[in-house]
Design a protein around this nucleic acid. Structure first.
Lengths: 222, 222
DNA sequence: CCGGGTCTGTAACCTGGGTTCCATACTGGC
DNA sequence: GCCAGTATGGAACCCAGGTTACAGACCCGG
């Protein structure tokens, strides 16, 4: 976990390190023509009904893409980690349509925003870049399809348990944020967590959940 | 609605008609190298955990892609109509992964199955083909993301009403099939339909639902 | 060290939707 | 015209999860 200040040089190192699939020549070009953006935790990168300004590659941190209702409820569709790009922007750029979801930096995030023209050009010229973008599309689609199934058929306690098992052993977060990730509400998440705690599977503290029995949580899935 | 028997000639006509974005030269090549497949209504084109044999373009009929649980419940992820391809296969071909869902012909369907090698070649060589495939990816992803929101936050009566309004004025289907589309069960769909009938919004008969007040159904959305 | 904001605990209550069960009715083949 | 298979009607019951409403508890800034 590097905590150095990031300049142009570090950006290049990060780009090469996080996106090994991209040939170095291309990386150089990206750094020259794309703009480096720092997004502090919590900042909104884009929102529904907005046109798309560029195709962002995440170098550091992570971005959550979610849908939300007027009533204030929310559900996380997927997370963009370092080494990935926000594929939603790809669709917007190619189809020239607006966003249909919201993207929020989940931690301090650094990303490289490829301007539309360059993105289009790369898609035509660069085979590796195309493969990269395509691969990500496929992955995302599968993920979101999976999510539909989860939301439609899996009980919330199971989904919460999965989440805890996957992200443990220690989660520094609030019940509200977990609820927003699952598409539920704070009270229910609190209630379920209490249940897990009673069974000795987790320990609860303010803004911190410690997983004590990952196996038990994971076993709920079945 | 053409009911002629379909031979090679008709396939070409259909291909050109349904896929105007593809240049005629490419269409010729596709017909020469891809295989024409007829799938009777109800036949399973592919299922989860199977590798992918080709990239199918739908010429006539329609294909439903859905997830299902061991318990027998089901939810429709999206529908592939004439002029579209099954993008899920694209991901499988490029990433060489297995399917994660099931595809069923919803009516007698005719499709053109592009073999993996040709698909890969076209993605490299043909800009219009690439644009076509890309465009579809973006669309599907948006659709499925939308579906997550619907399933997570919208009540079933509203979703059913939407479905009826969109697919009316007459639906030749069973309550079970509607349930499988929505990710619910027969009894609930029946109950809700009864409610709509009581309000004079639909008329119910065996294997047939007639929408009488589309405006009322559509208005539930808000 | 006081006070407002945020996070969590807890409980009563409600309801949408799933489960179970059975009755009825239509339909097509023999 | 009978019978098996399928589609629908209808009700009792249950429960996961959402709503509402507070009360502490912690945390930070002034």
């Amino acid at each position: 976990m590097t905590h150095v200040k990031l300049g142009a040089v570090d950006a290049k190192a990060l780009l090469l390190e996080q996106f090994p699939v991209l040939p170095p020549a291309l990386a150089g070009r990206l750094l020259a023509e794309a703009s480096l953006v720092k997004a502090p935790a919590g900042s909104v990168l884009f929102d529904a009904r907005q046109p798309c300004r560029g195709f962002p590659l995440v170098l550091e941190g992570s971005v959550g893409v979610s849908k939300s209702t007027p009533g204030g409820r929310e559900i996380l569709l997927y997370r963009v980690e370092p080494g990935q790009g926000c594929i939603l922007s790809g669709g917007c750029l190619l189809g020239d349509t607006d966003y249909t979801a919201r993207a929020v930096a989940e931690s301090d995030t650094m990303l490289l925003s490829i301007p539309p023209a360059l993105f289009q050009a790369l898609m035509v010229e660069s085979e590796p870049f195309r493969r990269f973008v395509f691969g990500m599309y496929g992955e995302r689609l599968s993920e979101v399809m999976e999510l539909v199934e989860e939301v439609a058929f899996r009980r919330l306690d199971v989904r919460l348990a999965q989440l805890l098992a996957a992200r443990g052993p220690v989660l520094e977060t609030t019940h509200q944020k977990l609820a927003d990730e699952l598409g539920s509400v704070r009270e229910i998440v609190s209630r379920l967590l209490r249940g897990f705690e009673a069974r000795g599977w987790v320990k609860l503290e303010r803004e911190r959940i410690t997983v004590l029995d990952q196996a038990a949580l994971a076993a709920m899935t079945s």
